[in-house]
Design a protein around this nucleic acid. Structure first.
Lengths: 200, 200
DNA sequence: CGGATAATAGCACGACCGTTCGTTCTTTTT
DNA sequence: AAAAAGAACGAACGGTCGTGCTATTATCCG
């Protein structure tokens, strides 16, 4: 035995399943996940796969959590090594756009927001919590930029966070319908206008 | 007989079905439409309903077209009686927001954009055509505002249309997750900033 | 009023759904 | 070496799905 933690084999399978499920949910949403076709995708039996999650809903929750962790690791984490304030805020937007490029075929988190914003249940609650958490991180970075004097002192963090998020929604939307490159270009132009508009 | 066109009865049923289907698709999306539950909803048999549309996909296309017509009638049409230029553009945004308020539980057109942006097929094509058409109308109104001198002469209609659309996506998104009123307030504030930013 | 035609119902099909169950094979622990 | 636990399997369940086919009923036109 080399590592201190034996991978426990079942855990490894669970992660393999989540990998496939994540890719599948990127394209068709969490609602498109079906035990049977996912099992065929992974290469195991329905029941064998099912045993790793007590229910379809638990599987969906696990995929959502995986997506949230990957998003944070790919977007927020790299930006934390950039000096706080406007530079970090720009870094977040840049990483977020890059995330959008890699997820042109669909982002689990955004799709889930659309899938569950009307209904209620565990999925809805999880989506709201995830989106709220990310919005909080955004507002924190904005508040730091205001404190550093990089943004107008009277900056309303919630308002700016909303506008940033809206532009990223626009990027995702236009990228899906009209192609990523044009959408990306317009998003960047819009951000330059936005930063200018929020500087004293 | 009062009207010149006898409603032909079948046509009336078809519209009744589309009414129910539209309401159902608002909440769960076009993908959630199922012949059986929709028939139970309308109060007729599966096969009786099915006969009005050759396939489920045709039903979905019909619902999408219905949604597009209603959107145009409720958002664009009222704004056409407002003087062209920035006033009309503001009117479009106001009507669009009102549409958003009435469709808090979900908008068929936006949901459809999310459902079919990755896949391909007739639904995808119809969604792209619908979104493209609306974007064209937006750009036309923007170009008029620029011609009237209400916006910066160097206004890029495509760019501004993108930013307007992004804000409306933000309204829809936040309304679904965090409540309409706060989202509406932030959207209006963002639009005031946007108009200012695009005036000479 | 009667016959053509449109509209709806009834029924059955194959496919897939999520879920449960009992069994087998492998791994770990005693 | 015996016993317990973990992991995956195959088969089957009751349901719902979309979609055909065949009657039956309602509506319209001459």
């Amino acid at each position: 035995m080399t590592a201190a933690t034996a991978p426990a084999k079942g855990q490894a399978t669970r992660e393999l399943i989540l990998d496939h499920a994540y890719e599948r949910a990127r394209v068709g949403g969490l609602e498109s996940l079906s035990i049977g076709s996912l099992a065929a995708d992974v290469g195991m039996s329905k029941s064998g796969l099912f045993a790793h999650f007590g229910s379809r809903e638990d599987l969906q929750l696990a995929v959502l959590e995986t997506a949230g962790r990957r998003f944070m690791a790919n977007v927020l984490l790299p930006a934390l090594s950039v000096p706080r304030g406007l530079p970090r805020l720009r870094a977040i937007v840049a990483q977020w756009s890059e995330w959008g490029r890699k997820h042109q075929s669909g982002c689990v988190l955004l799709t889930a927001a659309g899938e569950y914003d009307g209904r209620d249940g565990a999925l809805h609650d999880a989506v709201v919590a995830q989106q709220g958490g990310w919005r909080d991180e955004l507002e924190k970075a904005i508040a730091q930029a205001a404190a550093e004097g990089h943004l107008n002192a009277s900056a309303d963090a919630g308002q700016l966070a909303f506008e940033i998020y809206a532009l990223m929604l626009g990027l995702h939307h236009d990228a899906g319908l009209f192609g990523f490159e044009q959408a990306h270009q317009r998003t960047q132009a819009a951000f330059e206008r936005l930063w200018r508009s929020w500087q004293s």
